[in-house]
Structures are given as C-alpha cells and as structure tokens.
C-alpha cells in the first residue's frame, strides 16, 4: 500500500520524464517526430531489398513479405531500444539520484514507456503498409482477429520493463553489461524470425530450433503476425509461454531492483 501511495505521488514525475524523453529525442532534427515513421519505413525497405529475393519469394511461408518483416522489425526494435535506454537510465540520472530522493524505478520505467509511445506511433507505418498491400495481389488476410493485436503488444511491454529493470540494476555494478548486451541484441536479431521464417529454414527441430522457440520474442512476433497478417487466432502455447516468461521476468526485475536500489548511490 505504501508503494502505491508513493507511486501515486510521483506519477507526475513519470509523465514528465516520458515526455522529456520523447521531446528531446527529435529536438533539433529537421523532420522531428516524422522520424518515428520514416526510420522503420526506410530500414524495412532496406531489409526487403536485401532479403526479399531469398526469403520473400516463397508464398508457402510468407503471404506478404514486407508486412511480415515490418512486424518483426518493429517488435525487435522496440524491445532492444527500450531495454538499452533503460539500462543506461540509472547512470544517466546519477546527478539527480545523488541529490534528491526519488523512487529510482521511475527512470528505467519511464524510458521503456517513452519508447513504447514512439513504438505505438510507428505502428501507423504498419497500418499504411496493410492498406497499401490490400490493393495488391499479396494482400494480408485482415479479419476480426486484428483486434487481438494489443495482447502481444502488452506482453511485449511487460517483458521490456522486466528486462530493463534487470539491466539497469546490473549496469550500475558492472559497466561491462552494456557491451555484452550490445552483442546479445545482435544475436537476438538473428535468433528471432524477423526476416526469415523458422519453418522455411528447417529450423523447427534441433538445437537452434529450440533456441528460437525458447526466445519469447519469437512467440510474441508470431502472435502479432497471426493478428495482423495471417488473420487467424494465435496458438495458445505461444500465448501461455510468452505471458508466463514476461511476467516472471517482470517480477524478477522488480525484485532485483528493489533489493539493490539502496546500494546504487555508492556505485554511480
């Protein structure tokens, strides 16, 4: 109860920092907030140009390759960007944390939420893609299941907050984690079926297949694609696995953070 009261008191701070992060991200750039659309659009075009010929031509696996790719890329990009920002948030706010009492979880949390807001805005690109491809012969199958799309997105948010909390705590004590995580996110890019299809590469079995399936981002992207591309209900096992994994990481994240937060001041 005490914690909820404290959160209530500082909710305006959360809002202010989220706002600050979004405002400062594009300040002084000519196109400003347009980059939220432009960046995923352009990078997706690059990926389509590079991998479209290899992975996109087989209609058995991917009905509409650009949308397939965009779904994966948006989710991957949100996850890595938000967790990276959350990881650095405590050390970046050292000057404040050393001088004033603030609930410290506000910093990683607000960074993830700020990225989440830009992620939701960038989903408009996906909407544009879907509308455009509906008039081509590779139309995505849009059904009522599109309204279930918020479910994988919310699971993704829970996961990102949890991972962000863990990384923020670790990076206070070990700077190295920033470099390790950099490599890890690259590995994650290839371990998530973003530009390829897991079945197409015959990866469903064997060690690598297992690694891909253990990756919660795989379940989340598959669920999301079911909603906005395949137009069918997502597999229950994906939902259960992703949700359980995310909630567990979320709880572990808050637990570690809570246990260690009083020591932060001695290390930043």
């Amino acid at each position: 109860m005490k914690y909820f009261k404290n959160f209530h008191k500082y909710r305006y701070l959360l809002y202010e920092i989220v706002r600050k992060n979004i405002k400062l991200q594009y300040r002084n750039s000519v196109l400003g907030v347009f980059w939220t659309f432009l960046q995923p659009l352009l990078t997706t075009l690059v990926l389509v140009a590079v991998f479209g010929g290899i992975f996109g031509s087989n209609r058995n696996y991917t009905t509409c390759y650009p949308i397939y790719l965009l779904c994966g890329r948006l989710i991957y990009e949100f996850f890595t960007q938000s967790t990276k920002r959350a990881m650095r948030s405590i050390t970046n706010s050292a000057s404040v944390i050393k001088k004033v009492y603030v609930p410290k979880y506000i910093y990683p949390l607000s960074n993830v939420i700020a990225n989440f807001v830009t992620f939701v805005i960038s989903l408009l690109v996906l909407v544009c893609f879907i509308v455009y491809f509906c008039f081509t012969d590779t139309a995505p199958n849009i059904t009522g299941y599109v309204f279930l799309a918020p479910i994988p997105i919310l699971i993704l948010l829970i996961l990102a907050i949890g991972v962000g909390m863990i990384l923020a705590t670790l990076s206070v004590f070990f700077k190295d984690i920033e470099y390790i995580y950099e490599v890890f996110t690259m590995l994650l890019f290839y371990m998530t079926p973003i530009f390829y299809h897991a079945d197409q590469l015959k990866l469903s079995s064997g060690f690598i297949g297992m690694c891909i399936k253990a990756n919660p981002l795989y379940s989340i992207t598959e669920m999301f694609r079911c909603c906005v591309l395949y137009g069918r209900m997502f597999t229950m096992s994906h939902l259960i696995y992703a949700l359980a994994f995310s909630v567990a990481v979320f709880l572990i994240g808050f637990f570690i953070f809570y246990k260690k937060q009083d020591k932060f001041i001695l290390h930043i």
């Binding site: 809002y15 202010e16 920092i17 600050k20 300040r27 404040v96 001088k99 004033v100 603030v102």
Partner: peptide, 19 residues
C-alpha cells in the same frame, strides 16, 4: 541538480518540481 541541460528553463521548472 535535477535540470536537464537540453530543456528550456520553463520545461525544467516542471521537471524539477516533479522530481
């Protein structure tokens, strides 16, 4: 200490107050 250097004075008043 709670100021963000890229923020204007006006914006910092609200940020600092929130802090």
């Amino acid at each position: 200490a709670g100021f963000d250097l890229n923020y204007s004075g006006r914006e910092n008043i609200f940020l600092y107050g929130a802090t």
